[in-house]
Amino acid sequence: MALARLQVSPSVRAGEAVEVRLLVQHPMETGFRRESDGRAVPMNVVNSLVCRLGAVEVLRAEFGSGVSANPYLSFWIVPPASGELVVEWVDDAGVKGRVAATIAVT
């Protein structure tokens, strides 16, 4: 299951900066952890993530095992026009996730 929250103010004045906050539910396994029976848990992290507003790429990120479980990310944008803010990511196991929010520029 790829659960996530994307928080951004639904309406923004033109030219105004707005904070985008993203929380992805993911264990971000480092590969250094073992199960109670001694089996090593393979590394599995969200290795890449991309945020788009309409067709424009807003932010791209690569993560290693040094990012905490349930990765949190916040950044600031000036949306040029109304549109759907979409964040997509993929982990080492190939599992993809997507979360979206609508921004209205007034």
């Binding site: 990012v67 990310l73 600031w76 000036v78 949306p79």
Partner: peptide
């Protein structure tokens, strides 16, 4: 740890994470 690549829409050179 991580790398971030900003597009033209990003307003501030600031990132918060854990």
């Amino acid at each position: 740890v991580a790398a971030y690549h900003f597009g033209p829409v990003v307003a501030r050179a600031q990132v918060d994470t854990r």
